[in-house]
Design a protein around this nucleic acid. Structure first.
Lengths: 174, 174
DNA sequence: CAGTGGAACTACAGCCCTGTGACTCCGCAC
DNA sequence: GTGCGGAGTCACAGGGCTGTAGTTCCACTG
């Protein structure tokens, strides 16, 4: 709701400030995504979601997750919470990592058997439903983004160098 | 759509003949459902899908599955194939066993988080989609029935005492 | 009615996956 | 340098099977 204006020369929001600064360290990434640190660690080791700003290089080093990584982490969590096996989640993300651009906001992730799609309209989904082959799994990515943003604001209200407080729903286009 | 006519004085189809006779023994049930015998056994032991005509009572005894049991087995398999964890499947069936009447044919099974629903129209599903909270899993039960019928006809064409050879459901689909 | 063969259930060990706990280790900021 | 916090390691647990070697019961034969 509210003031998520698409101002071309707006201030960087907390998310961007964070990222520009240094990204999110493992522990915070886990908190924001709502998972345990051990899961985050396990997923990183097993190549499910790796920190894209800086990978670990031995004990004592620090992983650094980008905002997009957070979205992925949270999406994984959502799928898991919905009772989907990590095995399938891995397949999904193998695809997703390549095909997901920045248009996260109005899109549904649709999984049908072993094929993954990114669908915008309800029409298309109804169509899939009608020709119903097997189970459909549908994850609205908009919700994922909202959750991540909310978690960031709640856990780390001032970003890093303060910046814009509005939760940045980033709006339509992209 | 099509020829699954509800003819009041039709012959019993192979399915009904089978069941009236003695139901389906474990091994055949597994074949028809498209699962391994070990899975069937495991599910029976852990109370996921139990043979409703006769449960095992020691080595040498025989489980006897009803046609409806076959539908459940196949539905479980579909859910599993779709990457859903057995844990969730158990929850689903706890509900389903009570709320699934005989109208299996035009219904979608909708799972959202921990709540399970049986929905007929696309409207309702679109609505759920629109207010999208979390992941939706949708399984068209019609397909399940078709698959079971097809499997029975293919694997055991003569039912038991012959009976009606016409593939009951299928026809048009395909 | 006893004997027998085989189908089908049972027991049990073992495998893989997904974590979790409890340490240990070590890079980096100070 | 040194200490802190986060990465690494290892052992182990629980779920969900699978494979295999028993056990039984049941139907059929004689």
């Amino acid at each position: 709701m509210a003031s998520a204006s698409i101002d071309p020369n707006r201030e960087p929001n907390p998310v961007e400030a964070f990222e520009a600064d240094e990204g999110f360290p493992g522990k915070k990434a886990a908190e924001i995504a709502g998972i345990t640190y051990r899961q985050l660690d396990y997923w990183a080791r097993t190549d499910l979601v790796k920190p894209s700003l800086a990978r670990a290089h031995g004990s004592g080093s620090r992983r650094r997750y980008s905002y997009r990584d957070l979205l992925e982490l949270r999406a994984v969590k959502s799928l898991l919470d919905a009772g989907i096996r990590l095995e399938l989640v891995r397949e999904v993300f193998a695809y997703l990592t390549e095909h997901l651009d920045e248009d996260v906001t109005r899109v549904n992730l649709v999984i049908q058997g072993s094929s993954v799609m990114v669908r915008t309209g309800e029409e298309e989904i109804v169509d899939l439903l009608r020709r119903g082959q097997g189970v459909l799994n549908i994850l609205p990515l908009a919700g994922v983004k909202e959750e991540v943003d909310a978690a960031i604001v709640e856990l780390y209200p001032e970003g890093r160098r303060a910046a814009d407080e509005t939760p940045s729903a980033r709006a339509v286009g992209e």
